[in-house]
Design a protein around this nucleic acid. Sequence first.
DNA 1: ACTTTAGAGCGAACCGTTTCGCTCTAAAAA
DNA 2: TTTTTAGAGCGAAACGGTTCGCTCTAAAGT
Lengths: 375, 375
Amino acid sequence: MTFDQEMWYECKKEAGRTRANRFKIFGKEMCREAGTETHMPATIRDIRNKTGLSLATISKYLNGGNVLPRNRQLIEAAIEELHYEVNEIARGLVTNQTKLVGVMVYDIESLFVGNMLHYIGAELRRHGYGFLICDSFNDEEVEAQNLQFLLKKKVDGLLVIPVNISGKFMEPARKAGVPVVLLDRAFRDEEFDFVGIDNRMAAYRAVNVLIENGHERIAVITSDVEYSGIHRLEGYMEAMGDAGLSVRPEYRRLGKHSFELGYKNMKELLSLEERPTAVFLGNYETTLGGIMAVNESELSWPQDISIFGFDDLVMSRVLRPKIWIARQPMEQMCAKAVEILMERIGSRQTPEEQVIKVNFGIQLREGESIRRLEK
Amino acid sequence: MTFDQEMWYECKKEAGRTRANRFKIFGKEMCREAGTETHMPATIRDIRNKTGLSLATISKYLNGGNVLPRNRQLIEAAIEELHYEVNEIARGLVTNQTKLVGVMVYDIESLFVGNMLHYIGAELRRHGYGFLICDSFNDEEVEAQNLQFLLKKKVDGLLVIPVNISGKFMEPARKAGVPVVLLDRAFRDEEFDFVGIDNRMAAYRAVNVLIENGHERIAVITSDVEYSGIHRLEGYMEAMGDAGLSVRPEYRRLGKHSFELGYKNMKELLSLEERPTAVFLGNYETTLGGIMAVNESELSWPQDISIFGFDDLVMSRVLRPKIWIARQPMEQMCAKAVEILMERIGSRQTPEEQVIKVNFGIQLREGESIRRLEK
DNA sequence: ACTTTAGAGCGAACCGTTTCGCTCTAAAAA
DNA sequence: TTTTTAGAGCGAAACGGTTCGCTCTAAAGT
C-alpha cells in the first residue's frame, strides 16, 4: 500500500463524515424535517434520487437531448413533484453564460430612453434574456465605470446608447470579448455594430419640407453634445445650403439634450426682432420644451410659427394642431439591435471581421404645424 | 489492498490525465500559447500557482480576512500582474447571492418611474448591487410573469412599484424567501415592507390650499387604477367634505394614469358650461397633459383657472407662471427603500415578524398658479 | 523554561450544473 | 443468425469560488 493510496483512502472517509455533518446542520434534510416553509429549491440531484437516473441523463433532458420515453416521463414527473427549476447561476458557471445583457443608456430619465428600454426589454425577454441597466447620467466618466461594473457582472453582451462621442472607453469590452451593439448613437472614432437612422438625412428631409412650404427664415434647436445631434445639425445646414438659404447665427440654437434647451431657446427665438417663420426641433425632449414655450406665448402654430419636431412619443398623439414629426422606427430598431446582439453572442464571431451597420429609414408624419408661405 | 483503494487510485490517475487533456484542448495553456488576445480571465487558482499559497488563504484575503503582511504583498502582486477579478457568478453559486436586485415597475416609459429608477440605480450601486429591471407595461399578468422571471434569475431582493392592487401574485417571492420592498404603491390585501407617502394626506393638503384661496368649484383629474391614485382621490373627497363643499360628478375625472388622461379631461372641464375654478391634478403625467390642454386653449392660469399639480419633475422647473406642486421626496424614498432591502437581505430576517412601513412627508411647493377668490 | 492561546495557513468538500469519453443495449444491416 | 452501428445512459471531472475543521507557529502568560 503506497502512501498515495492511503491518503486517498483517508480522504474518502473524511469526506463522508464531513458531508453527513453538513447535511445534518445546514442541508435540506433538516429543513424538510423541520417542516420549514422556505424549503431549499430542488436540485438536479433530487431528481436523480427520485428517478434513479444519472445526472448526465437528466441534464441532457433539460437541454433538449434525447432520452427514452420512459425516462422522460420519470423525469417530468419528478420535476413536477419537486417544483424543480434549473439554477441558472450554476449553469452559467459552467457554460460561461449569464443570459444577461448589459444596457447602458445616457440618461434613464429621458423619455426617449424609456421608450427604447421598453422595446429592448420586451425583445430580450423573448430570447430568455434579462437586462442589467446602467444609467450614465450624461456623464462620460460614469459611463466608463458602468462598463467595468457590467463586465464584472459577466454580461453576455452589451447594448449601448452612449454619452461619449469617443468609443475609446469601450476597450475593456473588446478585450473581454463581450459583443457590443450601439443604438441610436455611433462613435466618432471606434467601429462597433450599430443600429440607428441616418440622422443627417432625416434632418435634411425634415428641413426640406419647411423649405418646400416657402420658408426661408428657419431656425434649429438641437443638441450638439452627442453624435446623432451633430448629424442632425449637419443635415439642417446642408438642406439650407442646397436651397441657397443662409443661416443666421442667432437661428442656430445648440446645447445639451433637454426639455429646457427647447423651452428656453424657443422663447428667445420668439422674442427676436426678426423671428424665424419656422423652427426645426432636433429631438423629443427639445420638441416638447419648444412646444410648451410656443403655447405659453401669445403666438400659435402654424399661423405665427411653423414647427417640425423629432421623435413620436405619447405627447404627439394628443397635440392639436398635430405637429409634423420625423419618426424613428424605434420598435424595429430595438428588435434589430437585439437580433444582432443575439447573433454575436451565439456565434462568438468577433465583430473585428465585419462590423454590421443598420440604418433604418425614417418616416415623416404629416401634421398641420406648417404654414404654407407664398412668395 | 481493498477494492475501494484501488478504485480511488485509478480515479486519481484518470483525473490527472483527463485534466491534462482538457487543458491541451480548451484550457488557457493553449490560449496563451497561441497568443490569442482574448485570454481567459485569471482565476484564484492562477494566483495560487503564482504565490504558492492555498486557495483558502487567497479567498480569505479577498474577503477581507487577515493574512500575513508578506502573503498579502504576494497576493496583491499576483492580482496586479494577472489582472485578476473575482468571478461573481462562481461566488454566487456558493454564497447563494447574486448581488442583483430585481426591480419591477408598472411602466418604464413613465417619467416618474424613470426618475425613481435613476435614484434606485445610484443607490444600489453604492451597495455594490446591480439591478434587473422588468417593465410590467401596466399589465397585471405581465407583472406576475416578471416575478417568475426574476425569481429564476435568483435575485437577492425585489423592489416593486406595482401595477396590481392585489398582492396575491407576490406569493412565489414569499415562498422563495426573497425580501420585497414596495415603493410608492402598496397593496390592498397583502402586507409588505413599504416606502411611500401618505397619499390621502398629500391630496388633502393640496386641495386645502385651493379651498383656502376661496375656491369651491374644484375638479380633480387622477388615476383610479392604482392604490395611491385612489388614496389621492379620497384625500380630495375628504378635503371637500370637511369644507362642506359638494363635488359634482362631472368634476371627478378618473381613468388610467397617463398624459392623455390629463389632456383630454382638462379640455372637457374647460368647455363645461359651468367650468371649475380650480383643478387638482393627481400625478405627473396627468399634470403635464392638463397643462398642455390649458396652454392650447384660450384660457390661462391663474386668471381663468387655478391649478395644483403633483410630482416635481423637470418640466415644472421651467413652466411659467410657476405651478403649485405637491412634491414627493423621491430621492429619499428610493434611498430608504434600498436601505430597507439591504437590511432584509443582510439579516435574512423575514418580514413576517415585523413589516416596515415608511411614509415620507410631502412638500407643497408654492407657485403662482392659484388665483385668490374673494367671496 | 514550559504551557497556553490566538490566529494564519491549508486540504478538501461543496455549491448545481454541463460535458467528455466511455459502456451497453437494441435495432438495422449483412 | 451474426456483425454493425446508432444512440441512450453513466461516472466523474470541471467551472471558480467559499468554508469547515484541522495543524502549526509564535507571541503571551506563568
